[in-house]
Design a protein around this nucleic acid. Structure first.
Length: 205
DNA sequence: CCGCCGATAGTCT
DNA sequence: GACTATCGGCGGT
């Protein structure tokens, strides 16, 4: 696999409602190229964060700040932010001025496994490489300098991957938002049934 | 395989 | 100064 063999999605792919996009991103490839090489993985878990009314979203109550500014951009851009020491990556969704996004929570390694292995401090277990939002960004080499990129071309892109008919989509409550009132119950987490790279396989509450 | 817990830094009040 | 859309090590089973 070389970079020019990936088939990036069209920008119009991102023009669907956020909950649909969270579902349709499953199976797609997330691809990052740096001077060290190309690393990619199939998206196997996502979460939707939907606008000013979603208590779990950074855009809750229309909090428009320097950090959340990209959530208001047109769909298909990245919204990255740091959680403790980790960088998390979101796909901006919804029309411009509508602050919605889809968090990528886990991928299954495809190209550049050796590079991912090194970046992850030679992590022994294969499934531990990319089974969390902070883990996958480190493995793929995604960092805060990727804030605001358009995901239709290198160095960071979403490309065609698995056929949607080839896997089952499961939904459930989002992770790590215990302080978000009713919103913590919304089934806005999506993952591929039976995939070993999904974070928190058993504890899906 | 599971759950607990401490580390760690960017952002906002 | 108080939050986190987290991670990994450790100890018990």
């Amino acid at each position: 696999m070389t970079l020019n063999q990936y088939k990036p999605v069209e920008e119009t792919f991102f023009h669907m409602p956020t909950l649909e996009l969270a579902r349709h991103l499953l199976g797609k490839l997330l691809v990052k190229t740096t001077s060290a090489g190309t690393a990619s993985g199939f998206i196997v878990e996502t979460e939707a964060y939907i606008g000013p009314g979603d208590r779990a979203a950074h855009s809750y109550n229309d909090r428009r700040t320097a950090r959340t500014e990209m959530m208001y951009a047109s769909p298909g851009h990245t919204y990255t932010y740091t959680m403790h020491t980790h960088c998390l990556v979101n796909v901006v969704s919804g029309a411009a001025e509508h602050p919605e996004a889809v968090l990528i929570r886990a991928v299954e390694p495809y190209e550049g496994r050796e590079l991912m292995h090194l970046r992850r401090n030679r992590m022994k277990k294969e499934t531990e490489l990319t089974n969390g939002p902070g883990k996958l960004t480190k493995a793929l080499g995604i960092d805060p300098t990727d804030y605001g990129r358009l995901l239709t071309h290198p160095p960071l892109l979403i490309a065609e991957g698995w056929e949607p008919e080839s896997f089952e989509v499961i939904t459930g409550p989002r992770i790590g938002i215990e302080n978000s009132g009713e919103a913590k119950e919304y089934p806005w987490r999506f993952w591929i049934g039976g995939n070993p790279f999904v974070s928190r396989l058993r504890k899906s509450k």
